[in-house]
Design a protein around this nucleic acid. Structure first.
Lengths: 214, 214
DNA sequence: TGATAGAATTTCGTATACTATTATCGCTCC
DNA sequence: GGAGCGATAATAGTATACGAAATTCTATCA
């Protein structure tokens, strides 16, 4: 059973991930406690966990704020994902089962359907799910955890710099390339495709950043 | 200033990392609170953070225990470190400054001195420091965080399967290879050396595992 | 003798209340 | 008029207390 702290954590986490709580915004624990209808204790626990996740920053007795998004740090996150996703894809080739393959295909289909409708709002969530399943298929819990951690940071960033429809199309295409390698049971191709996929996304970001001058 | 929860967290964390609290061992929050001379609240916060770190597991109203070490999972951790450390070394080549290089040399010297004395107890700590400085030199916070996370898991594992003196010697030698690449400002060589370093450590572990047959 | 049901104990989860630290606002002095 | 200092308010940190859930022990029955 989930505790109130768990519920508060998930609620706050998704609020931050979806941008309802913006970077720099101040958090008032007492106020949150009131709005959740609980005491400060479970709220505090949720806040502390989010702080450990790097989503909130707090100074003792001096307030809690939503962590800022350091655009420079994003490059590091993409670099890390590049090598981790390559590793995951290579391992997934050897372990992925039919159920997981079916789920991956299902997600791809959903993404294509949404693109048809021009609805890019849910794309980020589906993209996360795709990579989560892939990480699951790789067969090591640590890889799933790392993926989750890195994806969360990127999703937050995407709020401030959303991907356009054209870029989402290339995401879906690149996923297809990864899946083709999975079907061929070709670990090197899968790793290369995954690495290229993240690299391509990073390139889009860097492109955007270039306008800011660094 | 550090809160009591912070202090409890650090204390417990190091107790787990150093094996004073063994996997499967039961944690009594009330007892801990007494021994720390504080109430349950800060202890609870520390416990929850450690749970998020994967060092403790708890079931509601059913006690908290030190997380077990899944030897199979360790392979995943080494695989992840292999690619992350390669990334870090490659980046560090481009950014490492003189102070950091001096610190790395100092750590290497300390490790050599300890080996002379046949004292391998402190080696794990120095090894962690080496990789921490390297991650710092890479210039992205996320890489430092990931390193910290992965190192902690490995250190716990090392409690149950300590490295022998011969293996520690090869660790120091491999660190030297990485540092030579740093001095030559050769990113590819640094990445390759780092990757080989982690791979070599993983090989030792796997070797040991092989006796267990699985 | 072994299994099962229920009670007692253990231990976590949360609310309320209080303390300590920090931030902010206003006043005074330069 | 601006800067520095002090009082007040705001807010996180912690303690105490209570309630709920699960485990464990014991007693009884098959």
């Amino acid at each position: 059973m989930k505790s109130k702290a768990d519920l508060a954590y998930e609620s706050l986490r998704s609020a931050i991930a979806q941008g309802n709580l913006r970077p720099g915004e101040r958090i008032n624990m007492e106020e949150l406690a009131r709005s959740f209808g609980v005491s400060k204790i479970p709220i505090r626990e949720a806040v502390k966990r989010l702080e450990a996740d790097g989503l909130l920053v707090s100074r003792v007795h001096a307030g809690v704020t939503v962590a800022g998004i350091d655009v420079r740090e994003m490059r590091g996150v993409f670099l890390a994902r590049e090598v981790i996703e390559a590793l995951i894809a290579g391992l997934a080739v050897q372990r992925v089962d039919d159920r997981q393959l079916a789920e991956l295909h299902g997600i791809q289909q959903e993404m294509r359907d949404l693109l048809e409708q021009g609805d890019t709002a849910e794309m980020a969530e589906l993209n996360s799910r795709f990579h989560r399943v892939l990480a699951e298929a790789a067969g090591y819990r640590i890889l799933r955890d790392l993926t989750e951690q890195l994806l969360l940071t990127i999703r937050r960033y995407r709020i401030t710099a959303p991907l356009g429809e054209r870029n989402w199309r290339s995401v879906v295409d690149e996923h297809d390339t990864i899946m083709a390698a999975l079907h061929r049971r070709d670990p090197r191709a899968a790793a290369a495709a995954a690495r290229a996929h993240i690299g391509s996304q990073a390139a889009h970001e860097v492109e955007d950043e270039a306008e800011d001058g660094g």
